[in-house]
Nucleic acid binder design. Structure first.
Length: 138
DNA sequence: GCCAACGTTGGC
DNA sequence: GCCAACGTTGGC
């Protein structure tokens, strides 16, 4: 079981919309970056991911679960790009801002900090636990 | 609105 | 195969 972080611009697709899809979930389409694709392909059913809002918010706002592994992205103009389906698991009682993440040395090596442009990135178990805690879970 | 970081493209 | 130019992402 692995952990991930998925970035989205809330005006394009927000946590509110993800929540509204419920257990049926939603395809995570539109990824057009080689490194991000590698990560999408590595995702297994049941893996968990943080849902991160870019733009004005810049915060982790919720947790989603992979419910369907990588398959062809129907929104792509050319073959080879993939998407997964994810469903909302739960919101974070308290969203965790990027500024808070940058302050905490637990996250010094996190892709969110070191590679700001990567939209699909792995999260370590310790990073996962720390963000959950900062977010008010357990 | 600007710019740093990164990726892609195209000339050589 | 290198690298300059350009485009995009996303934080500030």
């Amino acid at each position: 079981m692995s952990y991930w972080l998925l970035k989205t611009e809330p005006s394009t697709f927000s946590w509110r919309e993800q929540l509204a899809r419920g257990k049926k979930g939603e395809p995570w389409s539109g990824v057009r970056n080689a490194q991000a694709r590698i990560n999408l392909r590595a995702m297994k059913k049941g893996d968990l991911a943080f849902f991160y809002h870019t733009g004005d918010e810049k915060a982790v706002v919720g947790i989603v679960k992979v419910i369907k592994e990588a398959y062809p992205d129907s929104s792509a103009d050319e073959a080879g790009w993939v998407m997964v389906d994810v469903a909302a698991v739960e919101p974070l009682p308290k969203s965790v801002a990027l500024s808070d993440i940058k302050k905490d040395k637990t996250f010094a090596e996190m892709a969110l900090v070191k590679n700001t442009r990567l939209s699909v990135q792995p999260v370590t178990a310790s990073e996962w636990a720390r963000v959950r805690k900062l977010g008010g879970l357990q």
